[in-house]
Design a protein around this nucleic acid. Structure first.
Length: 454
RNA sequence: GGCCACGUGGCGGAGUGGUGACGCAGCGGAUUGCAAAUCCGUGCACGGGGGUUCGAUUCCCUCCGUGGCCUCCA
């Protein structure tokens, strides 16, 4: 069945046709790592991990290249590094800072069940490629140098604004920012800017400086995927100006009609119905949530909603997801996986419809081998059934006492003293213990198991 | 202000020009000494108002609401 993906460029679902089926190429804008990543950062990481897994399934594991970059130079990083590593030269200080924050991020996304991308390039290791692109742009008449800056001249590109569907007139009308005096046109954006001695900087034909935000993605996608590639992803907020400007840089530098054939953008995330922000006090890092919830619960919650819809992260939703995973783990985690369900592949092939995919999982619940394979394809089941069950928060419960009470209750039941039996069950219930009576298949004896109520 | 999304049952959340998935919760039944778990069954929705159509939740217009971008924030 054909894979269809919603393409921001065409505003519709396009059939996915790879440029080279032996090497399907995808680039996703990764985080700016100046601190712990928040749960909103986790959405594109998880969504595109599912796409990566689907592409590997469809084209073969060795025929997909997934690049997720790391922005390791920007003004927030520079400021944080100067604060935390005051004695160090700026370039070393930002490296120092981002080594730490990136290691944290890698741990976070691993805990969310994500595969490592094929390449995770750093901006600061691609300065030469950036300079090469800027030089091509200047040579082609698309960029100019002014007061130590290199700037992209937007009017030089006739169909600038095509991705975001904005006209230059609209943007100028809505502009609220003061225009720097050295810009030839108010829309021109920075490719390279000068650095002071206490800011990170690298030598360039235009003096010591550092890259503008957008150029790194053009440089890194070029280096690792080529002048054009298949899929470019990120959050919706990146459509403009980030991706629009990347497109402008790459297309004009390489004289191509497209940078990537398909642009995909995930929707935003809210927390308990409100925009997540530090001022509202509902700002959560991935690490904080991982302290309270298994990574697979966070992952499941992220996939319950189609990636282009806004998603609302709620405690209630997380609890519901945990219980669903409990069920699936119990029936399928220890079963040798068979083949993923056709319905699952079909749902994912329809613009990554993970909500429908989850409905398909419910439909195959009674086929554990299929369920197991399907869940693994989606990036679940990193644990055994027992290991998963043990991830429940350690309850403050005296097991010996519980077992004694259960034994006493069984005795009462055998004596048909149901009043006493029920009294003990209520007592345990008050302690948060839930009983399940069953019959041993071989002996016919009544056996009682117990669980901590949630 | 300009541009762009979205608004589905108690909750979450797909989808479609013509009997409205799926999950959770609820209700009824089977089972159980009673429960739990399990199984079977079941009620409940397409923001308001116009329009197109034989017929709209699905297409168009408008209003209301929410959110996003225009400020190097996924």
């Amino acid at each position: 069945m054909a894979l269809k993906l919603y393409n921001t460029l065409t505003r519709g679902k396009d059939d996915f046709v790879p440029i080279d089926a032996r090497n399907v190429r995808m680039y996703v804008c990764g985080p700016t790592v100046y601190d712990f990543a928040h749960i909103g950062n986790a959405r594109p990481v998880i969504v595109f991990d599912v796409l990566f897994r689907l592409l590997r399934h469809l084209y073969g594991e060795d025929h997909v290249t997934y690049v997720r970059n790391i922005t390791d130079v920007d003004d927030k990083i520079n400021a944080r590094a100067a604060r935390d590593y005051p004695g160090e030269p700026p370039v070393e200080a930002i490296r120092h800072l981002t080594e730490t924050t990136y290691a944290q991020f890698e741990q976070d996304v691993a805990d969310l069940g994500c595969l490592k991308p094929t390449v995770t390039p750093r901006a600061t290791e691609h300065i030469a490629e950036m300079i090469a692109i800027i030089e091509r742009l200047i040579a082609g008449g698309f960029a100019y140098v002014a007061e130590g800056h290199a700037l992209f001249h937007v009017p030089s590109m006739p169909d600038y604004g095509k991705l975001a569907r904005r006209s230059l007139d609209d943007m100028l009308a809505g502009a609220r920012v003061e225009v720097a005096p050295y810009k030839r046109d108010p829309m021109d954006f920075v490719l390279w800017k000068p650095s002071t001695d206490d800011e990170p900087g690298w030598p360039s034909p235009w003096g010591r400086g550092r890259p503008g935000w957008h150029i790194e993605c053009s440089a890194m996608s070029w280096k690792h995927l080529g002048e054009t590639f298949d899929i470019h992803g990120g959050g919706v907020d990146l459509v403009f100006p980030h991706h629009e400007n990347e497109v402008a840089q790459s297309r004009c530098a390489f004289h191509k009609d497209v940078m990537a054939n398909i642009f995909m953008h995930n929707g935003f995330l809210q927390v308990e119905g409100e925009k997540m922000s530090k001022s509202l006090g509902n700002f959560f890092t991935i690490r904080e949530l991982l302290n309270d919830w298994p990574g697979e619960v966070l992952r499941f919650n992220m996939l319950k909603t189609h990636y282009r819809q806004p998603i609302d992260f709620t405690v209630r939703g997380l609890e519901e997801g945990w219980r669903t995973l409990d069920d699936w783990y119990a029936v399928a985690a220890d079963v040798p996986p068979g083949r993923p369900s056709d319905g699952l592949i079909e749902a994912l092939s329809d613009d990554l419809n993970t909500a429908r995919a989850i409905a398909e999982l419910h439909a195959v619940k009674h086929d554990p081998a299929t369920l197991a394979a399907s869940l693994r394809l989606l990036g679940f089941f990193h644990d055994s059934a027992a290991g998963w069950a043990a991830r429940r928060p350690a309850a403050d419960i005296d097991e010996t006492q519980v077992k004694a009470l259960i034994a006493a209750r069984l005795d009462a039941r055998k004596a048909r003293n149901f009043a006493e039996s029920d009294r003990i069950r209520d007592e345990l219930a008050a302690m948060g213990i839930e009983l399940k009576d069953g019959r041993n298949k071989d002996t016919g004896e009544i056996e009682t198991t117990w669980d901590v109520k949630r």
